[in-house]
Simulated assay, not measured.
Amino acid sequence: MTPVHDRRALWIAVAAFVIWGLMPLYWHLLRHVPSLQIVLHRAVWCAILVAAWLTVSRGRGWLREVVAQPRLVAMLALSGLLIAANWSLYVWAVNSGHVVEASLGYFINPLLNVVIGVLFLRERLSLPQWIAVALAAGGVLWLTFNYGSFPWIALCLAGSFAIYGLIRKFAAVEAVQGLGVENLFVFGPAVLALAWFEWSGGGGFFSLRWGGWTDVLLVLGGALTAIPLICFAYAVRRVPLTVVGLLQYIGPTLQLLLGVFFFGEAFGIDRATGFAFIWAGLAVFAIDGYLQARRRIVAQQL
């Protein structure tokens, strides 16, 4: 692999995280649409677009490869439900004035992955990792008791995505192919639910109620969620995981900035203090991961 290819993959990874970070702006354009219907449209159009992309790039056999493995099918069905729940909560949070707390969930997620590794994968934490987890836990407790509310949105987003990642870790399937199968499990129910909304008068797709521009945004919402994942799947195989691990904080950082400066959400000293504990934990975690990776590289060169 040449340095040019590495650099291209690096920028593709950056682009994926920037898209994820700026996504609240897109959902804000659809704030007049009920959050559940936004998520249902996302599921339908993402399933169609990803299935079409896989069929063009890999042929019709991409689905048969998975269907021939019942255990894998069951795992992807569960992961599909989890990611659907995650997206439902995320879109609702953005359009209900909780962008800052949603960003907190994605700051917490890497540390929650570490905890899951200890509980389910029998992994052992180093002292810096224990310190990182303790700092993050302290931040959550601070937000709960001093800010005045339990950060349930952040923890549910982090928890659902962490468990999703755990399932996908054991699901022996390529990332985009897995995404395609996951979406197929929610495609049918999503179509039926949208049809019911339209029939009962609660929808507005292809009607004068929302307008044609809204219809375009709902369709493109499927691509918006599929494209960064495809970019990420391309980049993660060509960029060191330590670099990807640091780049992933681009997304929640942009979301936090949008929440404070664009959406005008409160971010006083109490909330900032809780975030500071969590950011300190992330800093310890990131530095420890970087140093461990450097030690492994040096050991391999000896």
Rank of each mutant, 00 (worst) to 15 (best):
V99E: 12
A102S: 15
V100M: 04
A85T: 14
I131N: 06
A84L: 10
Y90Q: 06
S126N: 01
A134L: 15
E101K: 00
L135K: 01
V100T: 09
E123K: 15
A132M: 01
L104V: 07
V115F: 03
N86Q: 08
A136Y: 09
L121V: 02
V94S: 01
I116D: 03
W130A: 08
V100L: 08
I116L: 14
Y90H: 02
R124I: 07
I131Q: 12
F107H: 06
G80M: 14
V118R: 06
L81P: 08
W92S: 08
W92V: 03
L89H: 05
P128H: 08
G80P: 11
W92H: 07
S103R: 01
W142L: 03
Q129P: 00
L135I: 05
I108N: 10
V100H: 02
L89V: 15
I83N: 13
V140Y: 08
V133P: 05
Q129N: 11
N86H: 10
V99L: 12
A84V: 11
S126R: 12
G138K: 01
I108F: 05
V100N: 00
A93H: 02
L121F: 15
G80D: 11
A136N: 07
V100F: 10
L89K: 00
V133F: 08
V118G: 10
S88L: 13
V100I: 15
S103I: 06
V99W: 09
V114I: 15
A136T: 12
R122E: 13
H98N: 13
L111R: 03
L89T: 03
S88F: 14
S103W: 11
L125I: 06
L111V: 09
W87G: 06
A84G: 14
R124F: 06
Y106E: 00
L121E: 09
L111D: 07
P128C: 04
